[in-house]
Simulated assay, not measured.
Amino acid sequence: MTDLTDIYDMLKGVGLCSTQAEFSTEWLGRSSHYMSQIKGDPANASLTSLRLLAAELQLTALIAKGSADNATFRKVHGAWVAAQTICDGVFEQRHVPPFLRITAI
């Protein structure tokens, strides 16, 4: 998963989200048109939204781990790791000098 559209598609596939508007409001904490405005590109997203997405996915993964559905847990856990990596990369691109970057996209 390399962009927010991939994460949205995974959440939609496991039934945790049904529309991009819902993903924008419930998972990114923004207006219902946010995903269409940023076109799924993490570089256009706010760091606050990326951090919120990673935190929500981490919590959802912990809940899914306690359930009997191991496949959903693996998918959500993978999305959480991807969201955290995306967030770290975007942060580095915006705030870390190029010679010090280690995870930037």
Results as ranks from 00 to 15, higher is better:
residue 35 M to N: 02
residue 35 M to H: 03
residue 35 M to Q: 03
residue 35 M to L: 07
residue 35 M to V: 04
residue 36 S to M: 06
residue 36 S to P: 02
residue 36 S to C: 06
residue 37 Q to W: 03
residue 37 Q to G: 07
residue 38 I to C: 06
residue 38 I to N: 05
residue 38 I to W: 11
residue 39 K to L: 09
residue 39 K to Q: 11
residue 39 K to I: 05
residue 40 G to P: 04
residue 41 D to Y: 12
residue 41 D to L: 13
residue 42 P to I: 08
residue 43 A to D: 10
residue 43 A to V: 08
residue 43 A to S: 12
residue 44 N to C: 10
residue 45 A to V: 08
residue 45 A to F: 08
residue 46 S to T: 15
residue 46 S to I: 07
residue 46 S to M: 06
residue 46 S to G: 13
residue 47 L to D: 08
residue 47 L to R: 09
residue 47 L to N: 10
residue 48 T to S: 13
residue 48 T to V: 14
residue 49 S to A: 15
residue 49 S to G: 07
residue 49 S to P: 05
residue 50 L to V: 13
residue 50 L to S: 04
residue 52 L to N: 09
residue 53 L to D: 04
residue 53 L to H: 07
residue 53 L to N: 05
residue 55 A to H: 11
residue 55 A to W: 10
residue 55 A to Q: 14
residue 55 A to Y: 11
residue 55 A to F: 09
residue 56 E to Y: 15
residue 56 E to R: 15
residue 56 E to V: 09
residue 56 E to I: 06
residue 56 E to L: 15
residue 57 L to Q: 00
residue 57 L to H: 01
residue 57 L to R: 01
residue 57 L to V: 01
residue 57 L to S: 01
residue 57 L to E: 00
residue 57 L to M: 03
residue 57 L to G: 01
residue 58 Q to R: 13
residue 58 Q to T: 12
residue 59 L to P: 01
residue 59 L to A: 14
residue 60 T to W: 09
residue 60 T to D: 06
residue 60 T to F: 09
residue 61 A to M: 04
residue 61 A to E: 02
residue 61 A to V: 02
residue 61 A to T: 00
residue 62 L to R: 14
residue 62 L to I: 09
residue 63 I to Y: 11
residue 63 I to P: 03
residue 63 I to E: 14
residue 63 I to Q: 13
residue 64 A to E: 12
residue 64 A to C: 12
residue 64 A to M: 13
residue 65 K to L: 13
residue 65 K to N: 10
residue 66 G to A: 09
residue 66 G to P: 02
residue 67 S to C: 10
residue 67 S to R: 15
residue 68 A to T: 12
residue 68 A to W: 11
residue 68 A to P: 05
residue 69 D to H: 14
residue 69 D to M: 11
residue 69 D to L: 12
residue 70 N to F: 13
residue 70 N to L: 11
residue 70 N to A: 14
residue 70 N to K: 15
residue 70 N to R: 14
residue 70 N to H: 13
residue 70 N to W: 11
residue 70 N to P: 01
residue 71 A to P: 00
residue 71 A to C: 06
residue 71 A to S: 13
residue 71 A to W: 13
residue 72 T to N: 07
residue 73 F to A: 02
residue 73 F to D: 02
residue 73 F to W: 15
residue 74 R to F: 05
residue 74 R to I: 02
residue 74 R to P: 00
residue 75 K to N: 06
residue 75 K to I: 12
residue 76 V to C: 08
residue 76 V to D: 03
residue 76 V to K: 04
residue 77 H to A: 06
residue 77 H to K: 10
residue 77 H to Y: 10
residue 77 H to G: 01
residue 77 H to P: 00
residue 77 H to S: 08
residue 78 G to W: 05
residue 78 G to H: 05
residue 80 W to V: 00
residue 80 W to R: 07
residue 81 V to G: 00
residue 81 V to C: 02
residue 81 V to M: 05
residue 82 A to Y: 01
residue 82 A to W: 00
residue 83 A to G: 00
residue 83 A to D: 00
residue 83 A to L: 01
residue 83 A to I: 00
residue 83 A to M: 01
residue 83 A to T: 00
residue 83 A to K: 00
residue 84 Q to K: 15
residue 84 Q to E: 03
residue 84 Q to G: 09
residue 84 Q to M: 06
residue 85 T to A: 11
residue 85 T to R: 14
residue 85 T to Q: 09
residue 85 T to V: 04
